[in-house]
Design a protein around this nucleic acid. Sequence first.
DNA 1: AAAGATTGAAATCTCAATCTTG
DNA 2: CAAGATTGAGATTTCAATCTTT
Lengths: 171, 171
Amino acid sequence: VLSIRELPRVETLEAEAKRLTSLDPAAVYAFLSVLVTSAEIERRMETHFARYGLSQARFMVLILLKRQPEQTATPAHLADLAAVTRATVTGLVDGLAQEGLVERAHRTDDRRSVSVRLTKKGLALLERILPDHYARLGAVMSRLTRTEKKQLATLLGKVREGLGEAIDGAG
Amino acid sequence: VLSIRELPRVETLEAEAKRLTSLDPAAVYAFLSVLVTSAEIERRMETHFARYGLSQARFMVLILLKRQPEQTATPAHLADLAAVTRATVTGLVDGLAQEGLVERAHRTDDRRSVSVRLTKKGLALLERILPDHYARLGAVMSRLTRTEKKQLATLLGKVREGLGEAIDGAG
DNA sequence: AAAGATTGAAATCTCAATCTTG
DNA sequence: CAAGATTGAGATTTCAATCTTT
């Protein structure tokens, strides 16, 4: 969670665009809007989850497990779903297992692999958090009409399409 | 930078909404779109800045300094602009000063306070990075028309307005 | 005592190396 | 030797405590 707190003013961007022809003020403004908004949301979420003794990352593991068949997954699968390394998952599962929210079990078919399963206690914690979580989330989005919510998701989809060809691209 | 890699399918959300009435599928989908998109952008930016020997956070300090009068600011001001603690700024400035990209100077008017100033070397590095940076940023947003870019910024503004009343609110 | 900056300890995430199993 | 998981070292950020100046 690291981003600027305030967006630069449009005039500032337009002034800089006169020197740097590669700068498109509307693009920069929209781009930074995504980062600033997400950072602010994440700050709030971190505070919210802390009330339940969870970090955002630990919550993520629980909710991902909840959606898996038998509420079970391997660390490798979790790492893939959450876009973190396996080493990170190992640490997160360590903490969650210590609190009894998940269980580890060695798989019989391939004993290199491990099963991570959501426990009853873990599920109960999720059931306690989720209604509140979704209600808050809904409140955040409440200034947008149903149509605007769909527009927003569509526009962000186009941004992700653009990611394929830039920032990390050749050069 | 921690978020899921893939958005849940709309059907999954709709199925869960039948059990949890507080869940609005369109709201959740748009909300997660913001987080997923931002996380993916940040991953790319981290890679991009690493080519110049910078982290995203260090780049942020440099660009914030560049926009200040005399390209100078106190750690407290930088912390406020970047939404991090002063302790974090101290660490970032330590690193940047070691590489000669910024300079520290004790202020004469209030000797508790410190001036952090962008050096010629720091400015030169920025001038080298920025054209490339804005070009990549423009490419990311290239799938959106000018109108869509403005729409996106407007919609995200409404999301931030909604943040005032939720997630971190009483409860 | 209050404000600005810094330091040290703890949490979190990644990379590289290691251990176990196939 | 491949693949899955874990461990240890390094980077980054925050909180609480400390130091200096007002």
